[in-house]
Design a protein around this nucleic acid. Structure first.
Lengths: 141, 141
DNA sequence: CTAGTTGCAAAGAGTTTGCATGGCG
DNA sequence: CGCCATGCAAACTCTTTGCAACTAG
């Protein structure tokens, strides 16, 4: 919940908006916005703020010790589930009806209220399945 | 894929087996097994090995910059989905049939092969819902 | 003008690694 | 007995923080 709208925050939001479907690290963002005069600390501080605001979510790390974030600024993102391909890293937005069924059923059977915007399914996406059938085995990525 | 079965690894596996339902950090494990003579480095190295073996999975961090791990040594864990309560941190194993429906449907509609053992649903569990109704609002945990 | 933000650089924390020692098989 | 795993401590990397300068409102 920032009080001022700074140039840095705008650039940042802009970049995130344009890359909603890939998990990003602070350094990646820094590199990508290198020409726009944003210091690393400003990035970290804005990331922290956005995390609090709920428009940025941490993801599981990918082997390095960097924390990756995924942008979910769109209000719609709080209404459907997401899935991230563990092969190409892309995030997809699931409007599949089964999603809602699952959420409802889990609530009913287990009393567990699923937080859609915090939940991400991991697996292998259509493109990667096609490109590399071996990956299709799933489960032990 | 360790070649030798050391005392340290046994203690570690033992501890993990007894705490399958909570995300653990290297330090937590170190503290818990303090009396058993395992060095922090041995823990980190074993964690790395187990991650490779696929019996330990990284989870999203909880605010600190520690990486948390969740044990999924049981073969059964590769066949059902999991859900972690963002309130109490406990992990539940979901044998709800809707789970399978979801996985199948997503595969069919989006061509996305869900990796059950890597996927975790986040939300608020029954107990926490009951204990603290406010949390029930969900979605912006 | 006032208070939130930024930059820089130094501090902090968690994790990784080199090397000699110890232990499994 | 040979090789892998451990311990310790130093090295690293990512992230956080203090403080003075800057700037949005």
């Amino acid at each position: 919940m920032p009080k001022y709208s700074t140039k840095q925050r705008k650039v940042l939001l802009d970049y995130l908006t344009q890359h909603p479907d890939e998990p990003l690290s602070a350094r990646q963002i820094a590199d990508a916005t290198a020409g726009d005069g944003i210091s690393l600390s400003a990035i970290y501080r804005n990331i922290a703020a956005m995390e609090t605001e709920g428009i940025l979510r941490p993801c599981v790390r990918d082997g390095s010790r960097e924390v990756l974030y995924r942008f979910c600024g769109a209000a719609a993102c709080h209404e459907h589930l997401h899935m991230t391909c563990s092969h190409c890293g892309k995030t997809y937005h699931m409007d599949v009806p089964a999603t809602q069924t699952l959420v409802d059923q889990v609530a009913e059977d287990a009393g567990f209220r699923v937080d859609r915007s915090a939940t991400v399914l991991y697996g292998v996406c259509r493109d990667c399945c096609a490109a590399d059938p071996k990956t299709t085995e799933g489960d032990n990525v």
